[in-house]
Design a protein around this nucleic acid. Structure first.
Lengths: 230, 230
DNA sequence: ATGTTAAAGATAGTATTACTATCATAATTG
DNA sequence: CAATTATGATAGTAATACTATCTTTAACAT
């Protein structure tokens, strides 16, 4: 039996809660597919409306604009990831083991998901996060958006990871920066691997986990104490 | 006496070389100021033209579109940085020292520039790189742009840094990824520090160099051999 | 001086985008 | 059955991202 998680989203992210209606859910789900296919810039509410057999005005009733829809999707992803981290590290005692489990989650290398997220195409969403997530905050209105707590899920996830890092090494002084840079590195290295491979050392073959090993080495070398391990 | 460096740019980046005419140079220089002020999305050729006392059609004679202008500015920055790295590490024998010198360059913490770059506002350009550089490659046409060598300056800089890393530790297996992630980390941590400080451990006071220390620790812990140093 | 070429100015026009407004209709709820 | 709410349908606007064309100006060559 599979469970389904309902993630309660910040109300500032939408005009009308898309999870409360059929059209709303289709906007999000098909929006993920469309944006995954053609990218953020090429995506328009008109194209999405056509795909849904509705009109752009209807989509505007749910989301103020395309950027808010992106922020919504990304926020959903971070909340989902946070949930996955909690689930996967639950009952583990070793803080190293917890961090080990974290890495494949960040790279979406996990096969068994703890619960099926209601028809959301996770692979498409993960690709959107890799290619478009930075566009959610690299704007002139970051500060306003931040004030409205739009980035809280990302901060929460970073906070969670920073906690794991501090559990591993309470003396490490850069836990939050280490957490945010771990996430970001996972994503643009994935992007580079796929699109600008000469910026990486990874071949990109399906079962090549050199990126995972890179992240593992990078993480543990930085948060381990300088002395040889006892 | 100050010298002035002329950076030869890839011809694919423009329709007409902006360095060869007064209008062209003003497009680039004022473009940097405008984009630094209002950001990439808000920048239009119309606004830039007004600022220059010309018409948008004139700007289109130099650059195919706004994205190409961005790519040009970013490419110029990477070439400039590469030059700076070469200049600053010249005559140093210690590879550790070379890497040490690299870090403040990446953060634009260097006071003495080796040569004055012809009226280019480096501070504004650095801010553009922090906020907008990823938009140069996070597009649907990365591969086409890459084929046209538009990202060569970035790759060259990464290659240069990877070389320094390998000089420091010839056995390190992820030199290129380490180089690209060093650059990227420097930039989005700068952005976070300024705009989403809770994602970092840095206060952001003018003379606070905790970001520099973070990068230094992150870099050397990862590329040093696992054994205690001899 | 004159003719030629190239750069820039000026004006206009088009397709698309990112919305906003309004009104009708269908579905839901009380 | 009445009232409310969601959606559909249509229209319209201001701005954007260009393209085209024609004129003026400047440079340069003979």
């Amino acid at each position: 039996m599979t469970y389904s998680v309902y993630l309660r989203m910040n109300e500032k992210l939408f005009l009308r809660d898309p999870e409360q209606s059929d059209l709303g859910r289709r906007i999000v789900r098909q929006g993920i597919l469309l944006m995954g296919e053609i990218g953020f810039e090429e995506t328009t509410f008109r194209k999405l409306a056509e795909r849904l057999g509705t009109k752009e005005a209807s989509i505007y009733r749910y989301f103020e604009n395309k950027h808010r829809l992106l922020v919504y999707m990304i926020a959903w992803y971070w909340q989902w990831l946070d949930y996955q981290v909690v689930y996967e590290t639950n009952n583990l005692t070793s803080s190293r083991e917890k961090l080990e489990r974290l890495l494949p989650i960040l790279l979406q290398r996990t096969t068994d998901t703890p619960a099926t997220p209601n028809d959301i195409d996770l692979r498409a969403l993960h690709n959107i996060v890799i290619r478009e997530a930075s566009k959610a905050y690299l704007t002139r209105h970051v500060s306003d958006d931040n004030r409205e707590q739009l980035f809280k899920p990302y901060k929460d996830l970073c906070g969670r990871i920073a906690g794991l890092i501090l559990a591993f090494n309470p003396n490490y002084p850069y836990a939050r920066s280490r957490a945010s840079s771990l996430i970001e590195t996972a994503h643009y290295q994935s992007f580079f691997m796929e699109n600008l491979p000469s910026l990486t050392d990874f071949g990109g073959e399906p079962n090549d986990d050199s990126l995972l090993e890179f992240l593992r080495h990078l993480l543990f070398s930085s948060i381990s104490d300088g002395k040889s391990k006892g």
